[in-house]
């Protein structure tokens, strides 16, 4: 960045977080990294369009993770686009523009927001349930409040803090009453070849944020239902025994090549080709529908009210 510019980004760092702040007269940007939540998976560094995120490698000593991998920002390159904040699977990065939580690129319609959902159907929730969901949750995203009534604890409320949720599905699979529905944003696969594991190594289990990998009989075991495909385990493995890949990302609708570039970097060219096919299919459908309505309008000679109503619907689809 040029010196003497008031609007240059400034980096603040302490043991808990890194903040990048940029202030213009009429707009303020804040990109914040929570160092404790970050597990160094490096997805942000992969997609950063300006290559402004540097990864620090982990330190694995005698099969234990001495130091987790970390990331750092180069503020001379960072353009505060916020792509990293959108994609972080561990909610470690977030971005605010003028106090509102949104990424610049999302605001400018150049990047989508990931589709991730967690829903509790309260009716299915058994009040005498021992709340395994809260137990299994790797963060504190689910809070079950119980009240003691007639000598027995009964569940009065279940609250979900989505900003903490990893969408790992541990709660959904732990619930005996089928009351929770979780939709993961990433879809992919995880493969671990235990033959390549060094003796007594536990690094992957120690870094995994959702306890997908657990050590049993001195060997790591993968419970792939819980995997969120952050690929941090692949990063810390000293022997390249793990292969994590993503093949689909669920996101809101956006027409932007910037998103396709990020998608290619995170998944594969095949995935991007598929997404483009679906997009062009959607466009074809809406064009045809639009033409149908035009024909309909012309042939029928409707009265003015009807015409207006149709035009309204047509315009909605034209967008």
């Amino acid at each position: 960045m040029v010196n003497n510019l008031r609007g240059n980004p400034i980096k603040y760092e302490n043991s808990q977080e890194i903040r990048i702040e940029r202030e213009f007269l009429t707009r303020k940007y804040l990109l914040r990294l929570n160092k404790n939540l970050c597990n160094g998976c490096g997805l942000c560094s992969k997609i950063c369009p300006e290559e402004a995120i540097k990864e620090e490698p982990p330190l694995v000593v005698n099969g234990h993770l001495e130091k987790k991998p970390t990331i750092d920002f180069d503020i001379d390159s960072c353009i505060l686009c916020g792509e990293c904040a959108v994609l972080c699977p561990l909610n470690a990065l977030d971005m605010e523009v003028d106090g509102k939580e949104i990424s610049t690129f999302v605001k400018n319609e150049a990047f989508p927001v990931l589709l991730k959902e967690i829903n509790i159907t309260k009716e299915k929730c058994d009040p005498e349930c021992d709340a395994k969901c809260q137990e299994e949750c790797p963060t504190e995203a689910i809070r079950v409040t119980k009240k003691s009534e007639k000598g027995q604890d009964r569940i009065t409320n279940v609250q979900i803090t989505e900003s903490l949720c990893f969408y790992c599905k541990r709660c959904e699979l732990a619930c005996d009453h089928d009351a929770i529905q979780v939709r993961k944003p990433f879809r992919g696969s995880i493969e671990l070849n235990t033959d390549l594991c060094p003796e007594g190594c536990m690094a992957c289990a120690e870094i995994c944020p959702t306890h997908t990998i657990q050590i049993e009989n001195d060997k790591p075991q993968v419970f792939s239902e819980f995997c969120i495909f952050c690929s941090a385990c692949q990063k810390v493995c000293p022997n390249q025994a793990i292969d994590v890949s993503r093949d689909w990302i669920f996101h809101t609708d956006v027409t932007a090549a910037a998103w396709l570039t990020a998608l290619k970097k995170l998944t594969s060219v095949k995935t991007v080709a598929k997404e483009l096919r679906i997009k062009s299919g959607q466009r074809r459908t809406s064009t045809v529908r639009g033409r149908e309505r035009q024909l309909h309008l012309k042939s029928e000679q409707p009265n003015s009210d009807q015409a207006e109503a149709f035009l309204k619907i047509l315009n909605k689809y034209k967008k």
Binding site: R6, G7, N8, F24, L25, N108
Partner: peptide
């Protein structure tokens, strides 16, 4: 209008983007 990148404006001495 459609460019998504916002960076400091050198002519405006960094006061706006």
């Amino acid at each position: 209008d459609v460019c998504p990148v916002e960076i400091p404006n050198e002519f405006e001495v960094g006061l706006t983007w």
